[in-house]
């Protein structure tokens, strides 16, 4: 894949461990390409370093070995061409919703009139028009998450990195958000690298599902999900071919989580 926007090559990551010089090896040789306009989900057991990959792509963490390339350039400083949607919404509590969404544009020196326009458009896209002057503490968890996504979409980053963004939401809110994200990323033609531990979520949203092993983690498989879009996230099993796709992922993934043998 040479049209990769983001490519991880031969990534290894050791973290210092208390009482040992060698440290803990979390990632042990991962190669992964994220093609242009693709939605790639990364799943793996907890503690396998999924989020670490995102940190590396954002240039916030340098791999112990190997390189991350973004459009051919090695990432060795903070990568401002990406957008990061963290687990918690992480809106600035001292800024109103509109000021939050405006900040990336302000930091990038976008002119006032254009800023206002793009903030309005981004808030409209996530369904938060009318809440411009609310502070984050006045918004529900789902609304904060929407605000966080709007704050990323507003500056049209080349790649959007999402770190279990819906993990902390209740089940219904999550489905609605998944549906919205599917629509938004499709309309924007965005390239997304999406970390999750939820197989259903991965299969429903992604074009590719990359499966990581337990620590020290390697890439077990990179499975293409060829379901037609738009997909029905509310009734996953009603998507033609969903069962097979889920099965393909699950077959690889099940070896990585400790399930006691039980007769079917």
């Amino acid at each position: 894949m040479n049209d990769a926007v983001l490519s991880f090559s031969d990534i290894r990551q050791d973290f210092p461990a208390p009482g040992s010089d060698a440290g803990i090896r979390v990632i042990d040789g991962i190669n992964l390409d994220v093609g242009i306009g693709r939605f790639v989900a990364v799943i793996g057991p907890s503690g396998c370093g999924k989020s670490t990959l995102l940190q590396m792509a954002a240039g916030l963490l340098m791999p112990t070995r190997g390189t991350v390339h973004h459009r051919g350039r090695a990432v060795n400083a903070v990568n401002r061409e990406v957008g990061f949607v963290p687990q918690q919404a992480q809106l600035f509590p001292w800024k109103t919703l509109a000021q939050n969404v405006e900040l990336p544009l302000l930091l990038r020196g976008v002119a006032t009139a254009e800023r206002r326009e793009r903030v309005a458009a981004a808030l409209d896209a996530v369904g938060l028009s009318g809440f411009e002057r609310y502070f984050p503490s006045q918004l529900s968890g789902g609304m904060q998450k929407r605000g966080s996504i709007a704050r990323t979409l507003v500056y049209r980053p080349d790649v959007i990195l999402m770190d279990e963004p819906f993990g902390a939401l209740d089940a219904q809110t999550r489905m609605v958000m998944q549906n919205d994200l599917q629509m938004l990323s499709h309309n924007a033609g965005a390239t997304v690298l999406f970390v999750t531990h939820d197989i259903t979520e991965a299969v429903l949203l992604a074009d590719n599902v990359a499966i990581m092993s337990q620590r020290p983690s390697k890439l077990l498989a990179n499975i293409e999900i060829d379901l037609p879009r738009p997909r029905n996230v509310f009734e996953p099993f009603k998507n033609p071919g969903f069962e097979d796709a889920y099965d393909a992922v699950w077959t690889v993934f099940r070896s990585q989580i400790g399930i006691r043998n039980q007769p079917h």
Binding site: A58, N79, V82, Q90, F92, L107, R108
Partner: peptide
Amino acid sequence: ELANLTLVMGANQRQLTYHV
């Protein structure tokens, strides 16, 4: 994490100080 996020959004050190 909030500080890092602001850097990714495009902040330099001065802006990080002022906004965060």
